[in-house]
Design a protein around this nucleic acid. Structure first.
Lengths: 239, 239
DNA sequence: CAATAGTATTTATAATACAAAATAGACCTC
DNA sequence: GAGGTCTATTTTGTATTATAAATACTATTG
Protein backbone atom coordinates (compact mmCIF):
# COMPACT_ATOMS: atom_id res chain seq x y z
CA UNK A 1 0.00 0.00 0.00
CA UNK A 2 1.05 3.64 0.37
CA UNK A 3 4.28 2.86 2.15
CA UNK A 4 6.20 5.74 0.53
CA UNK A 5 9.37 6.58 2.44
CA UNK A 6 8.55 5.77 5.98
CA UNK A 7 10.96 7.17 8.46
CA UNK A 8 11.96 5.30 11.59
CA UNK A 9 9.27 6.74 13.81
CA UNK A 10 6.50 5.85 11.38
CA UNK A 11 7.97 2.44 10.76
CA UNK A 12 7.99 1.75 14.47
CA UNK A 13 4.47 3.12 14.86
CA UNK A 14 3.21 0.61 12.33
CA UNK A 15 5.18 -2.28 13.74
CA UNK A 16 3.87 -1.61 17.22
CA UNK A 17 0.35 -1.05 15.90
CA UNK A 18 0.41 -4.38 14.12
CA UNK A 19 1.90 -6.14 17.12
CA UNK A 20 -0.85 -4.77 19.33
CA UNK A 21 -3.61 -5.81 16.95
CA UNK A 22 -2.11 -9.27 16.67
CA UNK A 23 -2.79 -9.60 20.35
CA UNK A 24 0.83 -9.57 21.38
CA UNK A 25 -0.19 -7.42 24.32
CA UNK A 26 -3.43 -7.35 26.27
CA UNK A 27 -5.00 -6.06 29.44
CA UNK A 28 -2.82 -8.34 31.51
CA UNK A 29 0.39 -8.23 29.56
CA UNK A 30 1.18 -4.57 29.20
CA UNK A 31 3.68 -3.16 26.74
CA UNK A 32 7.39 -3.00 27.57
CA UNK A 33 8.81 0.25 28.87
CA UNK A 34 10.15 2.85 26.46
CA UNK A 35 13.64 1.73 27.27
CA UNK A 36 12.88 -1.89 26.49
CA UNK A 37 11.08 -1.08 23.24
CA UNK A 38 14.09 1.00 22.21
CA UNK A 39 16.32 -1.99 22.79
CA UNK A 40 13.99 -4.51 21.17
CA UNK A 41 13.57 -2.48 17.98
CA UNK A 42 17.05 -0.99 18.09
CA UNK A 43 16.04 2.65 17.91
CA UNK A 44 16.62 5.62 20.18
CA UNK A 45 14.25 6.49 22.96
CA UNK A 46 13.37 9.62 20.97
CA UNK A 47 11.94 7.60 18.09
CA UNK A 48 10.21 5.24 20.49
CA UNK A 49 8.53 8.06 22.34
CA UNK A 50 7.32 9.65 19.12
CA UNK A 51 5.82 6.35 17.96
CA UNK A 52 4.16 5.94 21.34
CA UNK A 53 2.71 9.43 21.01
CA UNK A 54 1.24 8.59 17.62
CA UNK A 55 -0.40 5.45 18.94
CA UNK A 56 -1.65 7.46 21.90
CA UNK A 57 -3.19 9.97 19.49
CA UNK A 58 -5.03 7.12 17.78
CA UNK A 59 -6.42 5.99 21.10
CA UNK A 60 -4.69 2.60 21.27
CA UNK A 61 -2.57 3.15 24.35
CA UNK A 62 -1.89 5.48 27.24
CA UNK A 63 1.23 5.98 29.28
CA UNK A 64 1.92 7.37 32.70
CA UNK A 65 5.04 7.64 34.81
CA UNK A 66 5.91 4.56 36.78
CA UNK A 67 2.87 2.72 35.36
CA UNK A 68 4.32 2.33 31.92
CA UNK A 69 2.43 1.91 28.68
CA UNK A 70 -0.97 0.29 28.84
CA UNK A 71 -3.40 -0.87 26.18
CA UNK A 72 -6.66 1.00 26.21
CA UNK A 73 -10.07 -0.60 25.89
CA UNK A 74 -11.27 -1.01 22.31
CA UNK A 75 -13.98 1.54 23.13
CA UNK A 76 -11.42 4.32 22.93
CA UNK A 77 -9.65 3.16 19.77
CA UNK A 78 -10.21 5.35 16.76
CA UNK A 79 -11.71 2.60 14.63
CA UNK A 80 -12.29 5.06 11.82
CA UNK A 81 -8.59 5.82 11.58
CA UNK A 82 -7.21 4.27 8.41
CA UNK A 83 -4.13 2.89 10.12
CA UNK A 84 -6.04 1.37 13.01
CA UNK A 85 -8.47 -0.19 10.57
CA UNK A 86 -5.69 -1.69 8.50
CA UNK A 87 -3.98 -3.09 11.58
CA UNK A 88 -7.24 -4.66 12.68
CA UNK A 89 -7.77 -6.32 9.32
CA UNK A 90 -4.19 -7.49 9.10
CA UNK A 91 -4.35 -8.73 12.68
CA UNK A 92 -7.26 -11.06 12.91
CA UNK A 93 -9.65 -10.92 10.01
CA UNK A 94 -12.83 -12.58 11.15
CA UNK A 95 -16.28 -12.85 9.71
CA UNK A 96 -17.89 -11.13 12.68
CA UNK A 97 -15.79 -8.03 12.19
CA UNK A 98 -16.74 -8.15 8.53
CA UNK A 99 -20.40 -8.26 9.47
CA UNK A 100 -19.92 -5.25 11.73
CA UNK A 101 -18.44 -3.45 8.75
CA UNK A 102 -21.37 -4.31 6.56
CA UNK A 103 -23.84 -3.23 9.20
CA UNK A 104 -22.16 0.15 9.15
CA UNK A 105 -22.24 0.28 5.35
CA UNK A 106 -25.92 -0.53 5.51
CA UNK A 107 -26.37 2.53 7.68
CA UNK A 108 -24.14 4.83 5.66
CA UNK A 109 -24.53 4.13 1.99
CA UNK A 110 -28.27 4.46 1.48
CA UNK A 111 -28.21 7.84 3.20
CA UNK A 112 -25.19 8.83 1.12
CA UNK A 113 -27.11 7.93 -2.04
CA UNK A 114 -30.01 10.00 -0.79
CA UNK A 115 -27.75 12.99 -0.16
CA UNK A 116 -26.08 12.53 -3.54
CA UNK A 117 -29.49 12.65 -5.20
CA UNK A 118 -30.04 16.03 -3.60
CA UNK A 119 -26.62 17.63 -3.75
CA UNK A 120 -24.39 16.02 -6.38
CA UNK A 121 -22.83 18.40 -8.91
CA UNK A 122 -22.67 17.53 -12.60
CA UNK A 123 -18.98 16.74 -12.20
CA UNK A 124 -19.70 14.33 -9.39
CA UNK A 125 -22.48 12.68 -11.39
CA UNK A 126 -20.05 12.27 -14.28
CA UNK A 127 -17.60 10.63 -11.92
CA UNK A 128 -20.19 8.10 -10.79
CA UNK A 129 -21.04 7.39 -14.42
CA UNK A 130 -17.38 6.84 -15.26
CA UNK A 131 -17.13 4.20 -12.56
CA UNK A 132 -20.16 2.47 -14.05
CA UNK A 133 -18.39 2.38 -17.40
CA UNK A 134 -15.39 0.86 -15.65
CA UNK A 135 -17.63 -1.79 -14.14
CA UNK A 136 -18.96 -2.63 -17.58
CA UNK A 137 -15.40 -2.90 -18.73
CA UNK A 138 -14.54 -5.26 -15.88
CA UNK A 139 -17.58 -7.29 -16.68
CA UNK A 140 -16.07 -7.96 -20.10
CA UNK A 141 -13.09 -9.43 -18.29
CA UNK A 142 -10.58 -6.61 -18.59
CA UNK A 143 -8.90 -4.68 -15.80
CA UNK A 144 -8.69 -5.28 -12.10
CA UNK A 145 -11.89 -6.95 -11.10
CA UNK A 146 -14.28 -4.88 -9.05
CA UNK A 147 -12.23 -1.68 -9.07
CA UNK A 148 -15.12 -0.04 -10.89
CA UNK A 149 -17.48 -1.37 -8.25
CA UNK A 150 -15.35 0.13 -5.52
CA UNK A 151 -15.09 3.45 -7.33
CA UNK A 152 -18.85 3.51 -7.75
CA UNK A 153 -19.45 3.40 -4.01
CA UNK A 154 -16.64 5.85 -3.31
CA UNK A 155 -17.91 8.40 -5.79
CA UNK A 156 -21.40 8.30 -4.27
CA UNK A 157 -20.01 8.99 -0.83
CA UNK A 158 -18.02 11.81 -2.31
CA UNK A 159 -21.09 13.22 -4.06
CA UNK A 160 -22.95 13.43 -0.76
CA UNK A 161 -21.10 16.70 -0.20
CA UNK A 162 -20.95 15.90 3.47
CA UNK A 163 -17.42 15.83 4.91
CA UNK A 164 -18.28 13.04 7.33
CA UNK A 165 -19.49 10.77 4.59
CA UNK A 166 -16.53 11.75 2.42
CA UNK A 167 -14.22 10.77 5.28
CA UNK A 168 -15.73 7.31 5.16
CA UNK A 169 -14.60 6.65 1.58
CA UNK A 170 -11.32 5.13 2.72
CA UNK A 171 -13.14 3.18 5.34
CA UNK A 172 -15.70 1.75 2.94
CA UNK A 173 -13.03 1.01 0.37
CA UNK A 174 -11.23 -1.20 2.87
CA UNK A 175 -14.48 -2.88 3.82
CA UNK A 176 -15.21 -3.61 0.18
CA UNK A 177 -11.82 -5.13 -0.46
CA UNK A 178 -12.10 -7.40 2.56
CA UNK A 179 -15.62 -8.34 1.58
CA UNK A 180 -14.45 -9.41 -1.86
CA UNK A 181 -11.77 -11.48 -0.20
CA UNK A 182 -14.27 -13.36 1.92
CA UNK A 183 -17.04 -13.81 -0.60
CA UNK A 184 -14.45 -15.22 -2.95
CA UNK A 185 -15.82 -13.45 -5.96
CA UNK A 186 -12.80 -13.17 -8.19
CA UNK A 187 -14.99 -13.53 -11.24
CA UNK A 188 -16.50 -10.61 -13.13
CA UNK A 189 -19.38 -8.47 -11.96
CA UNK A 190 -22.69 -10.10 -12.81
CA UNK A 191 -25.15 -8.42 -15.13
CA UNK A 192 -27.75 -8.27 -12.35
CA UNK A 193 -25.32 -6.47 -10.05
CA UNK A 194 -24.38 -4.07 -12.79
CA UNK A 195 -28.00 -3.27 -13.50
CA UNK A 196 -28.68 -2.68 -9.81
CA UNK A 197 -25.88 -0.12 -9.79
CA UNK A 198 -27.16 1.57 -12.91
CA UNK A 199 -30.55 1.86 -11.29
CA UNK A 200 -29.07 3.59 -8.26
CA UNK A 201 -27.20 5.99 -10.50
CA UNK A 202 -30.31 6.84 -12.52
CA UNK A 203 -32.26 7.59 -9.37
CA UNK A 204 -29.48 9.82 -8.07
CA UNK A 205 -29.25 11.61 -11.39
CA UNK A 206 -33.00 12.11 -11.41
CA UNK A 207 -32.76 13.67 -7.97
CA UNK A 208 -35.00 11.00 -6.47
CA UNK A 209 -33.62 10.89 -2.92
CA UNK A 210 -36.08 8.39 -1.51
CA UNK A 211 -35.73 6.11 -4.52
CA UNK A 212 -31.95 6.19 -4.38
CA UNK A 213 -32.09 5.45 -0.66
CA UNK A 214 -34.34 2.43 -1.15
CA UNK A 215 -32.35 1.05 -4.06
CA UNK A 216 -29.04 1.38 -2.21
CA UNK A 217 -30.57 -0.16 0.89
CA UNK A 218 -31.73 -3.14 -1.13
CA UNK A 219 -28.23 -3.72 -2.46
CA UNK A 220 -26.72 -3.44 1.01
CA UNK A 221 -29.19 -5.86 2.52
CA UNK A 222 -28.33 -8.38 -0.17
CA UNK A 223 -24.60 -8.08 0.55
CA UNK A 224 -25.17 -8.46 4.27
CA UNK A 225 -27.36 -11.49 3.66
CA UNK A 226 -24.55 -13.14 1.71
CA UNK A 227 -22.16 -12.72 4.62
CA UNK A 228 -24.73 -13.90 7.13
CA UNK A 229 -25.02 -17.04 5.05
CA UNK A 230 -21.27 -17.44 5.03
CA UNK A 231 -21.22 -17.13 8.80
CA UNK A 232 -23.96 -19.71 9.21
CA UNK A 233 -22.12 -22.02 6.86
CA UNK A 234 -18.89 -21.52 8.73
CA UNK A 235 -20.61 -22.23 12.04
CA UNK A 236 -22.18 -25.47 10.87
CA UNK A 237 -18.86 -26.59 9.47
CA UNK A 238 -17.08 -26.07 12.80
CA UNK A 239 -19.44 -27.93 15.06
CA UNK B 1 -14.22 18.93 29.90
CA UNK B 2 -11.93 16.00 30.69
CA UNK B 3 -8.83 18.10 31.06
CA UNK B 4 -7.34 15.93 33.82
CA UNK B 5 -3.61 16.49 34.25
CA UNK B 6 -2.39 17.41 30.85
CA UNK B 7 1.31 17.32 30.45
CA UNK B 8 3.16 19.82 28.30
CA UNK B 9 3.04 17.76 25.12
CA UNK B 10 -0.69 17.24 25.35
CA UNK B 11 -1.28 20.84 26.28
CA UNK B 12 0.64 21.98 23.24
CA UNK B 13 -1.15 19.46 21.03
CA UNK B 14 -4.48 20.96 21.98
CA UNK B 15 -3.31 24.53 21.64
CA UNK B 16 -1.95 23.87 18.17
CA UNK B 17 -5.05 21.89 17.22
CA UNK B 18 -7.30 24.73 18.25
CA UNK B 19 -5.11 27.29 16.50
CA UNK B 20 -5.28 25.28 13.29
CA UNK B 21 -9.04 24.91 13.44
CA UNK B 22 -9.42 28.60 14.14
CA UNK B 23 -7.90 29.15 10.74
CA UNK B 24 -4.65 30.59 12.06
CA UNK B 25 -2.86 28.62 9.37
CA UNK B 26 -4.03 27.59 5.91
CA UNK B 27 -2.81 26.24 2.61
CA UNK B 28 -0.88 29.43 1.97
CA UNK B 29 0.32 30.27 5.44
CA UNK B 30 2.05 27.15 6.65
CA UNK B 31 2.92 26.45 10.25
CA UNK B 32 6.13 27.80 11.81
CA UNK B 33 9.13 25.49 12.04
CA UNK B 34 9.63 23.28 15.08
CA UNK B 35 12.22 25.73 16.35
CA UNK B 36 9.84 28.68 16.06
CA UNK B 37 6.95 26.82 17.68
CA UNK B 38 9.26 25.92 20.56
CA UNK B 39 10.10 29.58 21.04
CA UNK B 40 6.53 30.83 20.62
CA UNK B 41 5.10 28.40 23.17
CA UNK B 42 8.22 28.33 25.33
CA UNK B 43 8.73 24.58 25.35
CA UNK B 44 11.58 22.34 24.31
CA UNK B 45 11.86 21.02 20.79
CA UNK B 46 11.19 17.56 22.24
CA UNK B 47 7.74 18.53 23.42
CA UNK B 48 7.05 20.36 20.19
CA UNK B 49 7.99 17.37 18.07
CA UNK B 50 5.81 15.06 20.14
CA UNK B 51 2.83 17.38 19.75
CA UNK B 52 3.48 17.56 16.01
CA UNK B 53 3.53 13.77 15.87
CA UNK B 54 0.17 13.56 17.61
CA UNK B 55 -1.39 16.01 15.19
CA UNK B 56 0.18 14.06 12.34
CA UNK B 57 -1.41 10.87 13.68
CA UNK B 58 -4.78 12.60 13.62
CA UNK B 59 -4.26 13.53 9.98
CA UNK B 60 -4.17 17.31 10.44
CA UNK B 61 -0.63 17.99 9.29
CA UNK B 62 2.42 16.47 7.67
CA UNK B 63 6.05 17.42 7.97
CA UNK B 64 9.12 16.83 5.87
CA UNK B 65 12.69 18.02 6.06
CA UNK B 66 13.31 21.44 4.58
CA UNK B 67 9.62 21.78 3.66
CA UNK B 68 8.47 22.29 7.20
CA UNK B 69 5.04 21.56 8.62
CA UNK B 70 2.09 21.78 6.28
CA UNK B 71 -1.65 21.62 6.81
CA UNK B 72 -3.30 18.68 5.12
CA UNK B 73 -6.53 18.82 3.18
CA UNK B 74 -9.66 18.30 5.28
CA UNK B 75 -10.20 15.05 3.37
CA UNK B 76 -7.41 13.43 5.36
CA UNK B 77 -8.40 14.76 8.77
CA UNK B 78 -9.76 12.16 11.14
CA UNK B 79 -13.12 13.84 11.63
CA UNK B 80 -14.25 11.01 13.88
CA UNK B 81 -11.44 11.67 16.32
CA UNK B 82 -12.88 13.21 19.46
CA UNK B 83 -10.18 15.85 19.72
CA UNK B 84 -10.43 16.89 16.09
CA UNK B 85 -14.18 17.10 16.42
CA UNK B 86 -13.95 19.27 19.53
CA UNK B 87 -11.45 21.58 17.88
CA UNK B 88 -13.73 21.95 14.88
CA UNK B 89 -16.69 22.84 17.06
CA UNK B 90 -14.68 25.23 19.20
CA UNK B 91 -13.16 26.78 16.09
CA UNK B 92 -15.99 27.83 13.91
CA UNK B 93 -19.35 26.47 14.92
CA UNK B 94 -21.60 26.94 11.94
CA UNK B 95 -25.04 25.72 11.08
CA UNK B 96 -23.88 23.90 7.96
CA UNK B 97 -21.47 21.76 9.96
CA UNK B 98 -24.28 21.08 12.36
CA UNK B 99 -26.46 19.93 9.50
CA UNK B 100 -23.70 17.62 8.31
CA UNK B 101 -23.65 16.14 11.79
CA UNK B 102 -27.36 15.57 11.79
CA UNK B 103 -27.27 13.96 8.37
CA UNK B 104 -24.82 11.48 9.78
CA UNK B 105 -26.98 10.86 12.85
CA UNK B 106 -29.88 10.27 10.50
CA UNK B 107 -27.84 7.54 8.87
CA UNK B 108 -26.51 6.00 12.06
CA UNK B 109 -29.14 6.07 14.75
CA UNK B 110 -32.05 4.30 13.06
CA UNK B 111 -29.78 1.43 12.12
CA UNK B 112 -28.38 1.39 15.65
CA UNK B 113 -31.91 1.12 17.01
CA UNK B 114 -32.57 -1.73 14.61
CA UNK B 115 -29.44 -3.55 15.73
CA UNK B 116 -30.29 -2.92 19.37
CA UNK B 117 -33.70 -4.49 18.80
CA UNK B 118 -31.94 -7.62 17.58
CA UNK B 119 -28.92 -7.84 19.85
CA UNK B 120 -29.38 -5.84 23.07
CA UNK B 121 -28.79 -7.77 26.30
CA UNK B 122 -31.08 -7.37 29.28
CA UNK B 123 -28.44 -5.21 30.97
CA UNK B 124 -28.30 -2.93 27.98
CA UNK B 125 -32.07 -2.69 27.84
CA UNK B 126 -32.07 -1.77 31.51
CA UNK B 127 -29.54 0.96 30.79
CA UNK B 128 -31.75 2.46 28.10
CA UNK B 129 -34.68 2.35 30.47
CA UNK B 130 -32.69 4.11 33.17
CA UNK B 131 -31.94 6.97 30.81
CA UNK B 132 -35.65 7.26 30.10
CA UNK B 133 -36.26 7.57 33.81
CA UNK B 134 -33.64 10.29 33.92
CA UNK B 135 -35.43 12.10 31.08
CA UNK B 136 -38.66 11.97 33.02
CA UNK B 137 -36.79 13.39 35.97
CA UNK B 138 -35.41 16.22 33.85
CA UNK B 139 -38.87 16.89 32.56
CA UNK B 140 -39.92 17.63 36.10
CA UNK B 141 -37.25 20.31 36.21
CA UNK B 142 -34.52 18.59 38.18
CA UNK B 143 -31.00 17.71 37.11
CA UNK B 144 -28.95 18.80 34.13
CA UNK B 145 -31.35 19.35 31.30
CA UNK B 146 -31.22 16.82 28.52
CA UNK B 147 -28.56 14.60 30.07
CA UNK B 148 -31.09 11.82 30.09
CA UNK B 149 -31.83 12.48 26.43
CA UNK B 150 -28.15 12.23 25.60
CA UNK B 151 -27.78 9.05 27.63
CA UNK B 152 -30.73 7.55 25.83
CA UNK B 153 -29.10 7.88 22.44
CA UNK B 154 -25.74 6.76 23.77
CA UNK B 155 -27.14 3.64 25.36
CA UNK B 156 -28.87 2.62 22.14
CA UNK B 157 -25.64 2.92 20.20
CA UNK B 158 -23.98 0.88 22.88
CA UNK B 159 -26.69 -1.76 22.72
CA UNK B 160 -26.10 -2.24 19.00
CA UNK B 161 -23.21 -4.49 20.00
CA UNK B 162 -21.30 -3.25 16.99
CA UNK B 163 -17.93 -1.67 17.86
CA UNK B 164 -18.20 0.86 15.04
CA UNK B 165 -21.50 2.15 16.31
CA UNK B 166 -20.22 2.09 19.87
CA UNK B 167 -17.28 4.22 18.76
CA UNK B 168 -19.73 6.82 17.57
CA UNK B 169 -21.20 7.39 21.03
CA UNK B 170 -18.73 10.16 21.81
CA UNK B 171 -19.26 11.60 18.39
CA UNK B 172 -23.04 11.66 18.72
CA UNK B 173 -22.81 13.03 22.23
CA UNK B 174 -20.87 16.03 20.98
CA UNK B 175 -23.33 16.51 18.15
CA UNK B 176 -26.22 16.46 20.59
CA UNK B 177 -24.65 19.01 22.86
CA UNK B 178 -23.98 21.39 20.00
CA UNK B 179 -27.44 20.83 18.67
CA UNK B 180 -28.92 21.82 22.00
CA UNK B 181 -26.78 24.93 21.93
CA UNK B 182 -28.11 26.00 18.57
CA UNK B 183 -31.72 25.07 19.00
CA UNK B 184 -31.69 27.03 22.24
CA UNK B 185 -33.73 24.51 24.11
CA UNK B 186 -32.70 25.12 27.67
CA UNK B 187 -36.19 24.25 28.83
CA UNK B 188 -37.28 20.77 29.84
CA UNK B 189 -37.93 17.88 27.51
CA UNK B 190 -41.45 18.04 26.13
CA UNK B 191 -43.96 15.30 26.83
CA UNK B 192 -44.22 14.53 23.09
CA UNK B 193 -40.47 14.06 22.83
CA UNK B 194 -40.44 11.87 25.87
CA UNK B 195 -43.22 9.71 24.49
CA UNK B 196 -41.42 9.34 21.17
CA UNK B 197 -38.39 8.04 23.04
CA UNK B 198 -40.49 5.63 25.08
CA UNK B 199 -41.94 4.30 21.84
CA UNK B 200 -38.49 3.63 20.43
CA UNK B 201 -37.50 1.83 23.60
CA UNK B 202 -40.61 -0.34 23.59
CA UNK B 203 -39.98 -1.37 19.99
CA UNK B 204 -36.37 -2.25 20.81
CA UNK B 205 -37.42 -4.21 23.87
CA UNK B 206 -40.02 -6.06 21.79
CA UNK B 207 -37.29 -6.99 19.33
CA UNK B 208 -39.07 -5.18 16.51
CA UNK B 209 -36.09 -4.12 14.38
CA UNK B 210 -38.02 -2.55 11.53
CA UNK B 211 -40.32 -0.70 13.90
CA UNK B 212 -37.43 0.65 15.95
CA UNK B 213 -35.70 1.73 12.76
CA UNK B 214 -38.74 3.62 11.52
CA UNK B 215 -39.44 5.27 14.85
CA UNK B 216 -35.83 6.41 15.26
CA UNK B 217 -35.77 7.63 11.68
CA UNK B 218 -38.88 9.69 12.30
CA UNK B 219 -37.28 11.39 15.32
CA UNK B 220 -34.10 12.09 13.38
CA UNK B 221 -35.97 13.60 10.45
CA UNK B 222 -37.78 15.91 12.82
CA UNK B 223 -34.53 17.10 14.41
CA UNK B 224 -32.98 17.70 11.00
CA UNK B 225 -36.06 19.62 9.88
CA UNK B 226 -35.71 21.95 12.88
CA UNK B 227 -32.15 22.79 11.91
CA UNK B 228 -33.06 23.22 8.26
CA UNK B 229 -35.63 25.75 9.42
CA UNK B 230 -33.02 27.52 11.53
CA UNK B 231 -30.74 27.71 8.51
CA UNK B 232 -33.49 29.10 6.30
CA UNK B 233 -34.33 31.64 8.99
CA UNK B 234 -30.71 32.61 9.35
CA UNK B 235 -30.35 33.02 5.59
CA UNK B 236 -33.39 35.28 5.24
CA UNK B 237 -32.15 37.40 8.13
CA UNK B 238 -28.75 37.96 6.49
CA UNK B 239 -29.92 39.13 3.07
C1' DC C 1 20.44 27.64 -21.29
C1' DA C 2 20.73 23.18 -19.08
C1' DA C 3 22.80 20.18 -16.23
C1' DT C 4 25.28 19.81 -12.12
C1' DA C 5 27.47 20.71 -8.02
C1' DG C 6 27.33 23.13 -3.83
C1' DT C 7 24.88 25.53 0.12
C1' DA C 8 21.51 26.40 3.43
C1' DT C 9 17.38 25.11 5.92
C1' DT C 10 14.48 22.08 8.24
C1' DT C 11 13.12 17.77 9.99
C1' DA C 12 14.90 13.05 11.76
C1' DT C 13 17.52 10.55 15.00
C1' DA C 14 20.50 9.82 18.84
C1' DA C 15 22.39 10.42 23.32
C1' DT C 16 22.49 12.36 27.85
C1' DA C 17 20.88 14.50 31.91
C1' DC C 18 17.62 15.65 35.12
C1' DA C 19 12.64 16.53 36.71
C1' DA C 20 8.24 14.86 37.97
C1' DA C 21 4.90 11.44 38.84
C1' DA C 22 3.32 7.15 40.68
C1' DT C 23 3.93 3.17 43.12
C1' DA C 24 5.67 -0.28 46.30
C1' DG C 25 7.56 -1.24 50.37
C1' DA C 26 9.71 -0.09 54.67
C1' DC C 27 8.85 1.92 58.79
C1' DC C 28 6.52 3.93 62.44
C1' DT C 29 2.65 4.86 65.54
C1' DC C 30 -1.14 3.66 68.14
C1' DG D 1 -2.18 -5.67 63.44
C1' DA D 2 -4.48 -1.62 61.18
C1' DG D 3 -3.53 2.46 59.44
C1' DG D 4 -0.93 5.98 57.93
C1' DT D 5 3.57 8.38 56.62
C1' DC D 6 7.89 8.49 54.55
C1' DT D 7 11.35 6.96 51.42
C1' DA D 8 13.28 4.61 47.62
C1' DT D 9 12.66 3.13 43.07
C1' DT D 10 10.88 2.90 38.64
C1' DT D 11 9.08 4.93 34.61
C1' DT D 12 7.61 8.60 31.84
C1' DG D 13 8.20 13.77 30.93
C1' DT D 14 11.12 17.57 29.47
C1' DA D 15 15.28 19.88 28.08
C1' DT D 16 19.61 20.22 25.65
C1' DT D 17 23.06 19.25 22.40
C1' DA D 18 24.94 17.11 18.47
C1' DT D 19 24.76 15.11 14.06
C1' DA D 20 22.46 12.94 9.96
C1' DA D 21 19.37 13.08 6.19
C1' DA D 22 16.33 15.21 3.00
C1' DT D 23 15.27 18.81 -0.03
C1' DA D 24 14.73 23.48 -1.85
C1' DC D 25 17.48 26.99 -3.53
C1' DT D 26 21.74 29.01 -5.59
C1' DA D 27 25.64 29.30 -8.13
C1' DT D 28 28.66 27.40 -11.36
C1' DT D 29 30.18 25.44 -15.40
C1' DG D 30 30.06 23.67 -19.92
Amino acid sequence: MEISHRNLTQQLTHELGEAILQGKYNEFKKLPSEADISIEYDVSRTATREAIKMLTAKGLISSRPRQGIKLKDIKSWNLFDTDVLRWILLGKPDLYMLRHFLQLRLAIEPEAASLAARFATTDELAQIERSLASMKFNQAGYEDSHQGDIDFHKSILFASNNPFFVQLTTFIETALKVNLLFTNRAEAVSEAEYQAHVEIFNLIKAGNAQGAFDAAMKTQRETLRLVDEKIAEFKSKNL
